[in-house]
């Protein structure tokens, strides 16, 4: 809540300083009444902080882009979506959406989805530490699947994309150079196809967030569970998919720390 009237705000020296820093038309600098060298230091620090913050939160996007263009994007995004939380780590939740509205985002349409993946990875890195409440697994043998729901670890994100995000991510961040090259080639091949769909999952077994591609049936099953459908309803969505095995899924889900608790309605 703001306890100053608009009039008072217009007069207040803090508001004037903020305006001098943020409104960087050259006429504004000349008229602001502050020492121009000083204002320029604050402007440069703001841009540098923003640039550093986004570089850390969106490592793939900033590898994909030339530094000149990314500097311009940071500058635009800063003005469009100024920080308001007091923590640069939490700034950038709508960077992906912003990218999709830019010219470079239109030319390279996978950029916005790469940003969304980067953001999920970033949030998972700082997300709550959760592990499986293994006692609740008993519900699988005690209760009706119609009544069972799976609460996933909060760091799990599953989403569909029309681009080879997992490959693009690995092409930049895999620790092995040969794997990076192979991923880059796979990404290129996938991008040259007319139609493509991928279901991407971000998860965090312990501290390091990971990304993987789900098969169509795993994806369908997980998206159903994540949408709040019961275990039974979710299993029904993959009933006709011969490649899907719940047993295998469960084994992997535990190994990857995907599940937080099993709940009975």
């Amino acid at each position: 809540m703001n306890d100053l009237s608009n009039n008072e705000i217009a007069k207040n020296e803090q508001h004037l300083l903020l305006e001098a820093i943020w409104n960087d038309e050259s006429s504004a600098l000349a008229q602001c009444g502050f020492n121009t060298q000083g204002i320029n230091i604050y402007r440069r620090n703001l841009l540098a902080n923003a640039q550093r913050a986004l570089n850390i939160s969106f490592p793939t996007v900033f590898e994909l882009l030339d530094s000149d263009i990314s500097e311009s994007l940071v500058y635009q995004f800063l003005r469009l979506s100024p920080p308001n939380l007091g923590d640069w780590t939490q700034w950038g939740g709508n960077f992906s959406r912003f990218l999709s509205t830019t010219e470079v985002g239109a030319d390279y349409p996978y950029l916005a989805d790469c940003a969304a993946l980067d953001w999920h990875m970033h949030c998972a890195l700082h997300g709550i530490d959760q592990t499986l409440a293994s006692s609740t697994l008993q519900l699988f043998s005690e209760s009706e699947p119609e009544q069972l729901f799976i609460a996933f670890n909060q760091n799990v994100k599953v989403f569909k994309t029309a681009y080879p995000l997992t490959e693009i991510f690995q092409a930049h961040h895999h620790s092995n150079e040969l794997k990076r090259e192979a991923a880059m080639n796979d990404a290129k091949k996938a991008l040259s196809r007319d139609s493509f769909e991928q279901i991407v999952m971000v998860y965090r077994p312990e501290f390091q967030p990971k990304v993987t591609t789900l098969s169509a049936s795993e994806g369908k099953f997980m998206l159903a569970l994540l949408a709040g459908k019961s275990l039974s309803q979710s299993l029904d969505t993959v009933k006709c998919d011969n490649e899907f095995s719940f047993e295998q899924w469960l084994f992997t889900a535990i190994e990857r720390n995907l599940i937080n608790i099993i709940k009975e309605k």
Binding site: F62, L64, D66, D68, V104, Y108, P109, K188
Partner: peptide, 19 residues
């Protein structure tokens, strides 16, 4: 804009329409 000259977008490519 120098676009993506030094970035990996130049390796991956964009859309032919956009080009």
């Amino acid at each position: 804009w120098k676009l993506v000259k030094k970035g990996t977008c130049s390796t991956l490519g964009g859309l032919s329409k956009a080009e």
